[in-house]
């Protein structure tokens, strides 16, 4: 297929571009890190990085910001996969947040995310003095991301200023930052959700089992199915966990992540379901529901 007339399929073009970006960042920054969220996008990004430096190892560590509220299956997957692949994984948790007893139930989704995710990430970046952080975000995810650069510039406070972003031409990325400043690099910028799934399928990339439908204990809250992943889940009066065949379109903190009822147990079935879906991916994320433009707000504050 590749040979005929020297043409590449769109996935091969995207792959080559992403590898180019990953190598550029590794070559031009002093202390890059790859943010690893354990989701499918991270899985694809990680595979692309392995391709970029093959037969060498990754010249940077992975960083997982652990809120301590992730699904158990995510953490198991993370530890096993990183061990198997010989990856240098760093895990960071905001200990002050833990000490203050921040949790999704009492603190609310916004505060929990702010402290355990956004602030925690900043702490980790400062602690290790990373000057470039790869993220697996895509431009098709959300309207406000459509203008995001591949190299997204952050000031000393890790803030994103929409007015202070650099024009980005061709594949010539500007890596100049002063001490303390940094960039977020998004190698998957031009991928769509379908591209990611197709790539996972084609390349046989292992992903967390939660993406596949299975019978799981859930409760229905404000029209969203929340999985009872451990004993910390607080049930409201009258709430009884039911066993339902569900799966997740995105993964995060389990009390804040909605499941969908599904029978899809293979990748083609997941893709089929997605193609037939009538609502966008982000609906499953509770944090986005407050208001339009909330992603933009989060980005300014330093969350992705």
């Amino acid at each position: 297929m590749i040979r005929s007339g020297y043409n590449l399929t769109h996935l091969k073009v995207l792959e080559a571009e992403s590898i180019h970006i990953i190598r550029e960042v590794a070559a031009e920054f002093e202390r890059p890190v790859m943010l690893y969220s354990i989701g499918k996008d991270s899985a694809v990004m990680l595979r692309l990085a392995q391709k970029a430096f093959y037969p060498g190892r990754l010249p940077f560590p992975l960083l997982h910001v652990d809120t301590t509220w992730k699904f158990k299956a995510m953490i198991e997957f993370r530890d096993r996969y990183c061990r198997e692949q010989g990856l240098d994984l760093k895990v960071w948790t905001n200990q002050e947040g833990i000490a203050q007893g921040i949790n999704p139930f009492d603190s609310g989704s916004k505060k929990h995310t702010d402290i355990m995710k956004t602030a925690a990430l900043k702490q980790a970046l400062n602690h290790y003095q990373f000057d470039a952080a790869f993220g697996g975000a895509r431009r098709d995810e959300e309207k406000s991301r459509a203008k995001e650069r591949v190299y997204s510039f952050r000031d000393r406070l890790h803030q994103w200023d929409p007015k202070n972003q650099r024009p980005e031409l061709w594949n010539l990325y500007n890596s100049k930052v002063n001490k303390g400043e940094s960039i977020r690099a998004f190698p998957l910028s031009n991928w769509t959700e379908l591209d990611v799934w197709q790539y996972v399928h084609l390349e046989n990339i292992p992903i967390v089992p939660l993406y596949f439908a299975d019978v799981r204990p859930v409760v229905e809250r404000d029209g969203t199915l929340i999985m009872v992943d451990d004993e910390r889940m607080r049930l409201l009066p009258g709430e009884v966990p039911m066993m339902k065949k569900v799966r997740f379109r995105t993964l995060g903190c389990y009390p804040l992540t909605g499941a969908i009822e599904s029978n899809a147990t293979t990748l083609p079935e997941i893709i089929e379901e997605m193609l037939l879906a009538r609502n966008s991916e982000r609906q499953g994320r509770v944090i986005d529901h407050d208001e339009t433009g909330s992603m933009e707000q989060k980005k300014r504050e330093g969350y992705f």
Partner: peptide, 24 residues
């Protein structure tokens, strides 16, 4: 994301076809 009609073909045929797309 594109919504498609699977009454005409199955997902495997669909995927095989979509893996060969060009980019413009």
């Amino acid at each position: 994301m594109q919504q498609v009609d699977f009454s005409q073909e199955d997902i495997h045929t669909y995927l095989a076809r979509h893996q060969r797309k060009e980019l413009l």
